[in-house]
């Protein structure tokens, strides 16, 4: 196969070269930039003024860093776990056969193809304190007494963005989990039934173990998509009020593109990229490349 595979090598080399220049090198360059101070008016050079760990002290060493980090973790954990649980519940509904099942299941994907910046704006109007439909529903059902400032109250802002992100994440959880459930051989259930297993122990001893690879895939994808989330923050809170919903990826972007402190933006990006790479490593390790790719 080695001989005469010139065409294949050429195809692969082109793509790899492209990815190297526009993904690999930028990745390493972020780390280099994090040790420099970049004058926004003298950006057109590769090496800028070296400042050692100053950017690290100013960002990751600041008082703000801890709250940003914990916001990121809260956002990540709540998003991934709730969208998984809801998605699994929906998958169990959609695994039985009924008229229109495939169409209904497919329509859930609508949140996935809607431009996320538009999704953010839709949720702003739902969450609006004065005129939002959510406050209306909650007050008229008597669940809350006074309208909540979903996006303006520091106690709620992060959770409001989380809710919108869960809405975005439910469909792929549900769809991948349904496909996983459908792939379980039915004779396993029959055998369990013969052994007198009830619904719960069939779920516990047949469904769950067979679903492990799918669950690993879905949760990893959930983590990846959630760490990518940017548009919802941009549209809904801009990280506010007073940093209450600020997460790492938005903080980094804010430094680079709003206050033009590219060195600091790179520092936060470096920390976050390190985190993402570790998560990615776990994902690859636990699911083995052959299963993932």
């Amino acid at each position: 196969m080695k001989r005469g595979a010139t065409f294949e090598f050429a195809m692969l080399a082109t793509a790899i070269l492209f990815l190297l220049v526009f993904a690999g090198i930028p990745l390493i360059y972020t780390v280099i930039l994090s040790f420099q101070e970049i004058d926004p008016f003298k950006i057109n050079r590769i090496v800028h003024e070296w400042v050692g760990f100053e950017n690290y002290r100013d960002t990751l060493g600041s008082a703000k860093a801890w709250s940003v980090f914990s916001n990121t973790v809260i956002f990540l954990c709540l998003s991934v776990s709730i969208q998984f649980v809801v998605g699994f519940g929906l998958a169990l509904v959609f695994v039985s056969r009924f008229v229109g099942r495939d169409v209904m299941r497919g329509l859930f994907l609508v949140s996935w193809i809607t431009p996320q910046i538009a999704v953010g704006i839709i949720w702003v109007s739902i969450f609006s304190q004065k005129i939002g439909i959510l406050n209306y529903a909650l007050t008229s059902l008597g669940i809350v007494d006074a309208p909540i400032g979903w996006l303006t109250d520091p106690d709620y802002a992060l959770y409001s963005v989380t809710i919108a992100n869960i809405w975005l994440g439910i469909p792929f959880n549900m769809i991948f989990l349904t496909v996983g459930l459908l792939a379980i051989p039915s004779n396993l259930y029959e055998a369990a039934r013969m052994d007198g297993a009830n619904a719960w122990s069939r779920f516990r001893h047949v469904t769950l173990p067979s679903m492990i690879p799918t669950i690993v895939t879905v949760i990893s994808l959930g983590i990846i998509f959630t760490l990518q989330q940017f548009e919802l923050f941009a549209a809904m809170t801009s990280g506010g009020p007073a940093g209450a919903s600020l997460v790492m990826q938005y903080w980094s972007w804010e430094f680079s593109f709003l206050t033009f402190e590219i060195g600091k933006g790179s520092t936060i990006a470096t920390a976050m990229l390190l985190f993402v790479t570790v998560v990615g490593g776990f994902y690859v390790y636990f699911s083995r490349v052959d299963d993932v790719v």
């Binding site: 990815l19 990745l27 990518q228 990006a269 990229l273 993402v276």
Partner: peptide, 15 residues
């Protein structure tokens, strides 16, 4: 490639 796919765009925008 699997890892590259995970890098958040908002972070890659800076470099």
């Amino acid at each position: 490639i699997v890892v590259l796919q995970m890098l958040p765009a908002a972070l890659m925008a800076t470099p």
